[in-house]
Simulated scan of single mutants.
Amino acid sequence: MSLDTVVEDIRDEARARAEEIREEADERAEEIVAEAEADAEQIHEEREAEVQREIEQLREQRLSSAKLEAKQARLEARRDVLEDVHEDVEQAVADIDGERREELTRSLLSGAASEFDDGATLRVYGRADDQALIEDILTDYDDAEFAGEHDCLGGVVVESEASRVRVNNTFDSVLESVWEDNLKAISDRLFDSQ
């Protein structure tokens, strides 16, 4: 065997081995590419699902926020309407005049006076426009005098010199009591169709 033949045999073996290594490398490269593509597809699907979840979550948050804003706007509008109605009622109460005003003032003064001991000296306060009316009504009481103005829609505030008791029987206090007691019914009646 000659040296050329040995060299040629070694070269053939080397070529065969190189071809075998190349084929193994190509197979391994194909496996790696296939694994990478599968991983990429899985990552893509997971990311797409995550993006869809984020979109759905954001949509839910915005919808919830919009519903809350709408509810707050509706409540604010209702509150505004109730305030307007309250102001209209206050004006209607302030506008009561004549015999009806005298009758209500007498009743409120009588109720307030009954809270004090007999013989107590009473100071009575009322609306400036009602001073003459109150002074006229006070002629029926022995120990009572008009003591001055009170900022109110009508009625009286009565206090005694002998005690620390002060009775607020103004139209305002009666209106507020009635308003608070009936606010739900008023609201239901105003907004029953909504």
Rank of each mutant, 00 (worst) to 15 (best):
V89I: 13
D95F: 08
F116R: 00
R47C: 09
A38R: 12
R53W: 12
F191I: 08
E48G: 11
D39S: 10
D9P: 02
E90P: 01
Q72E: 14
D12R: 10
R15V: 12
K184F: 02
V174R: 01
L104V: 03
D4P: 06
S64R: 15
A34C: 05
A70V: 06
Q57L: 11
E145S: 05
W179E: 06
R74W: 12
G119P: 01
I96K: 03
D39P: 06
E8C: 09
G154V: 01
M1T: 11
A77M: 13
S65W: 14
R189S: 13
L3I: 10
V7E: 09
A49P: 12
E180I: 06
T139Y: 10
G111Y: 14
E27L: 06
R101S: 02
V158D: 01
F191K: 11
K184W: 02
E20S: 09
V51W: 15
A112N: 03
L58W: 10
V93T: 06
V81W: 14
V174A: 04
R47N: 14
S173N: 07
S193H: 10
R123I: 00
L175P: 00
L138G: 04
V167S: 00
Q42V: 06
E56K: 07
A94D: 15
L68I: 14
E115A: 07
E13V: 06
E30S: 13
